[in-house]
């Protein structure tokens, strides 16, 4: 089957990544996959307010996912947090938490702000990729990076990194997936649609492989920030 943009089933869209894009943040990163662009800024560890949220045993990881007003495909995205963005903020937290040791930051918070400038499906995955890079850029100890992508199941075929057009298809199954690229441990798995267990397992294996490709781009971007100056 030919995909709408001419890609092979397990071919990812063109990716681009950069760190240190937001000056005032402790760590920041941009991740672009196809027409989806995510920026992430990390602030902290810093003091946690309101104070009743403070936990002397463990720090807090707080994510904020936001689609910018102009980021949709035509209609203005209403700028207030909605049910969808809150859910995505939550699953992003859960996807990133396994790589951090939050017990090192009692009473503190690590804030992550994810802004989507342009969207064409796979926003939460792009957001997680950017956020993982921003955390590493902020100098926060991490077990591994987190790489995320979407898996689709369309017309009896597994496709990786679905775009907006494919997502709109009737009967398309959209799976958000995040894993630690080194060990392949899954930190996010959301399924929207129907899929058989055997096919899903096959899809996950393909996605893990693709996640390694994404991780390579993330690693390169993290190092590039320092390589520039080596040349000068």
């Amino acid at each position: 089957m030919k995909r709408s943009d001419g890609r092979a089933p397990d071919e990812l869209r063109k990716m681009e990544a950069k760190t240190g894009v937001i000056k005032r943040a402790d760590g920041s990163a941009m991740f672009r996959i196809g027409e989806t662009i995510a920026y992430a800024a990390v602030h902290g560890p810093r003091e946690l307010h309101p104070k009743f949220l403070q936990n002397p045993e463990k720090g807090l990881l707080r994510c904020n996912y936001n689609m910018m007003a102009f980021s949709g495909s035509g209609e203005r995205v209403r700028p207030s947090p909605n049910r969808r963005s809150r859910e995505i903020s939550l699953v992003t937290e859960k996807a990133l938490e396994p790589v951090l040791d939050l017990t090192a930051y009692p009473n503190a918070v690590i804030d992550i702000f994810i802004e989507l400038l342009q969207t064409d499906a796979g926003t939460r995955c792009a957001g997680i990729c950017a956020a993982a890079m921003a955390l590493a850029d902020a100098g926060i100890p991490m077990k591994d990076l987190v790489s995320a992508l979407s898996i689709g199941y369309l017309k009896n075929e597994i496709i990786l990194d679905i775009n907006g057009e494919e997502d709109m298809n009737e009967g398309a199954t959209d799976i958000a997936f995040a894993c630690l690229p080194r060990t392949g441990e899954i930190t996010l798995l959301q399924i929207d649609g129907e899929i058989k267990k055997e096919i899903l397992l096959k899809g996950l294996e393909k996605a893990k492989e693709a996640a390694r490709k994404i991780a390579d781009i993330q690693r390169k971007a993290l190092k590039e920030r320092y390589h520039d100056k080596n040349v000068a």
Binding site: M142, D144, P181, A215, R219, K223
Partner: peptide, 8 residues
């Protein structure tokens, strides 16, 4: 050498 989290 410059390394990143998760690098062996």
């Amino acid at each position: 050498k410059i390394v990143v989290p998760g690098e062996v």
